[in-house]
Nucleic acid binder design. Sequence first.
DNA 1: ATCCATACATGCATATGCGCATGTCCCTCA
DNA 2: TGAGGGACATGCGCATATGCATGTATGGAT
Lengths: 280, 280
Amino acid sequence: MLALVRGKTLAAAGQSLGVSYTTVARRIQTIEETMGLQLFERLADGYRPTAAAMAMAEHAARMETEQHALMRRLQGEDQRLTGPLVITAPQLLIGPYIAPVLRHYAETHPDVDLILRATNDLLDLSRREADLALRISGSPGDSPRIKGRKVCAQETASFASLAYAERLDPQLTVDWIVYEGHPHVPRKALERAPSSRVRYVFDDMVAIIGAAQAGLGVARLPLFLGRSSPGLVQVPLLPPQPYADIWVLAHEDVWPSAKVKAFRDMLVPALRARRGEFVA
Amino acid sequence: MLALVRGKTLAAAGQSLGVSYTTVARRIQTIEETMGLQLFERLADGYRPTAAAMAMAEHAARMETEQHALMRRLQGEDQRLTGPLVITAPQLLIGPYIAPVLRHYAETHPDVDLILRATNDLLDLSRREADLALRISGSPGDSPRIKGRKVCAQETASFASLAYAERLDPQLTVDWIVYEGHPHVPRKALERAPSSRVRYVFDDMVAIIGAAQAGLGVARLPLFLGRSSPGLVQVPLLPPQPYADIWVLAHEDVWPSAKVKAFRDMLVPALRARRGEFVA
DNA sequence: ATCCATACATGCATATGCGCATGTCCCTCA
DNA sequence: TGAGGGACATGCGCATATGCATGTATGGAT
């Protein structure tokens, strides 16, 4: 019901429920027959909810919230080290930093199934899209009831390919490769190289690194990324400066669960031990 | 789940859910297997919920409340005059007062299925145990969100069998038959007949009337009851005095529904037209 | 000590719900 | 105007869940 109102089509609703769209259609039909009222208008391009369906969806959403709260609570009290553990982390941190921890964790707790979601989006920890999140974020208190622990500070600097760095002249025009979210030349860089300009705007960090490695220009990158990217060298256009910190986050209900706590206890020291890779 | 926590036994839970207790047992078992945790301890005299089950029940109760709210809301918006309509009224009002209205209503709206619950308890209108209640009650605002309309005032007086009334002497001992809820001789009756005493305490109004008809003593009865009970006559021990009024009640969500409104519109005038039977 | 009532466990036949495959309608695009 | 795809409808075989009947254990009354 709720899924159908949200998804607009039987197929979408079915997928979100993990059942076939046929089943969704039959369930709706059953409900309509039982209640003796029409919930959806059958249109050529999908089901359109009636007012009654909207009302039902509204209540169903509240019930769903309640359901999520229950699941979180049960999970938080779960002291077993078995079953699934869903972790989300920025794509670029996973390989070099998370993977070793995953390996250690899997060996120590062989009955836990580790599920990793590589994403920079803030998955909804309240909806249990993930149990534990590693995030690069200035504000860990994104939403109420999310608990967080600062792992490490982080700094950025300017990087370019070796060839580009060698012929770099602050007096001439400097080409910048920037992230879509901040499509400007860093202010401090303008002071040192006034004729800097944005030449490339990318929506993907890997692509930015690739472009910098190809010698297209200068990119502002987190220290750990620039240093670990082959062919890139730090250029003195931008002094190392504070960037968003690294945090581990979890819903406060889920935070105390054994699986989550054990992962934290492994992840945080592992990252802190390599603090030098994140700050100058 | 919730039903089992409430009912304490599989059979009770099954009954409240309208399924066999076998099904409840299997459902619990399935949930326990799926979640991988124990919800109930199997004891000889029933299932005892674990902490996890209590937590689940708590959330389930909130979901149930939400569900009830939804159903009420849908019903309140229902402008059709078909389907079930559940009415509750005091047992003794049904025959002489409600039945004629029921008949008229059934003829006018033949597609409505009338379900009557004869009870003095205040059924929970929020839980949809009844759609509309006729109540003898001083305080109609029993719970929030219940809407009410006063139908008629009511008075009580003292009644006894004809034989008892004829030999009644206020100077001698007067035997009273009283209701369990108020196991005292009315104060005003003591003024007029100081040696009155409670001789019988009954928990059933019909039994009280029967006892009075059998000549066991004097009973304080609503006027409509005393007057309509064959063999009883009013005795002057107690002047007619105000009693709890008659109200129609419904949850405010359900109040505007067509079926409920139509019933009110028939019931209230029918009762008011016979106001003289309730007050002197 | 025996019987009985209560409550849960289990086996079996059946009903219900499910997914897959196919059919139909309508809209879009060439 | 005709082909193609998206979305819903329908029929069929199968898995699951349900109900009934029966069996077992426990506690209390006689």
